[in-house]
């Protein structure tokens, strides 16, 4: 930490404390031997982890959430990557408008989107919950795909593709051997961001859930409303652990600087 700037350093410490301490409380509480969600924990045990992993609604919801996040991420990338390439490399009129259109889901309140999708898709077209949620989450994730993959293209030398063409590569070959490798860290980071955002989403999932299909955050929310035992803390800790593993994996394979900078230099 930079000790020559005491105010900035103090703010940074305060920031970390505010963000990390509550999480620490949840993790510690999860290891309680008692039967209420309180701090400090009464005794130490892993019984609530066993409970959480044996609790059928959580497991079903976890599978649903993973399924939904994977589907929405794949779809968002499938749409978002070509859009990003078109915006940054194509000769299309009204680029600003196109980009604005694909980024707009970021500013529309999710509850509004959820309600609209509920009325139109589930009631209007009679779609099931997974389909409606996949469409909704995809719409929400597209801005990430467009922005993050676009960033890696915007930072790359625009002449590299021309250089490849000049050396004898067809447009398709150029895309496969130059553009796509330049995009790779961007795609990886967009996938990571989309997946995590979809997995954690509550507002859309809350409105588009059904008895048959419910995501994990919504199920946990339901659970907290009915019961105050530490099982929810244990589940939260497990999700946290999963996220950390994902993050470490990302750091080891690509590196955060590349992922979140979206730069391949």
């Amino acid at each position: 930490m930079n000790t020559r700037r005491p105010v900035a350093a103090a703010l940074a410490v305060a920031g970390y404390v505010v963000m990390l301490v509550p999480i620490l409380f949840v993790v510690v509480t999860a290891f309680t031997a008692g039967s209420t969600l309180r701090f400090p924990p009464e005794g130490l045990s892993t019984r609530w982890f066993e409970e959480a992993l044996g609790y059928e609604p959580f497991l079903t919801a976890l599978v649903s959430s993973l399924q939904l996040a994977a589907l929405a991420t794949a779809l968002a990338l499938l749409i978002g990557v070509p859009v990003a390439v078109a915006i940054h490399r194509g000769r299309i009129p009204g680029k600003g408008l196109v980009e604005g259109l694909f980024l707009s889901p970021l500013i529309v309140p999710e509850l509004v989107v959820g309600l609209a999708l509920y009325q139109q898709l589930m009631i209007g077209f009679g779609l099931d919950s997974l389909t409606a949620l996949t469409l909704g989450h995809t719409a929400l994730m597209i801005p990430y795909a467009v922005r993050v993959t676009g960033a890696s293209l915007a930072l790359a030398d625009p002449h590299v593709e021309e250089a490849a063409r000049g050396l004898g590569a067809s447009p398709l070959r150029t895309f496969a051997t130059v553009t796509l490798p330049l995009l790779r860290p961007g795609i990886f980071s967009a996938a990571l961001l989309s997946f995590v955002t979809s997995f954690n989403n509550v507002p859309l999932s809350l409105l588009l859930q059904t008895r048959e299909f419910r995501t994990l955050p919504v199920t946990m929310l339901d659970y907290v409303q009915q019961s105050y035992d530490p099982m929810v803390a244990a589940m939260a800790t497990l999700i946290l652990a999963g996220t950390v593993v994902l993050a470490v994996l990302a750091e080891r394979t690509v590196g955060f600087a590349k992922i979140f900078g979206g730069i391949n230099r």
Binding site: A156, D157, H159, V160, E162, A163, A164, G166, V178, P181, L182, R184, N264, R265
Partner: peptide, 11 residues
């Protein structure tokens, strides 16, 4: 062709 920015393939 040699470009002003060189346009080398970074990967």
């Amino acid at each position: 062709m040699v470009f002003q920015s060189y346009a080398l393939f970074p990967h």
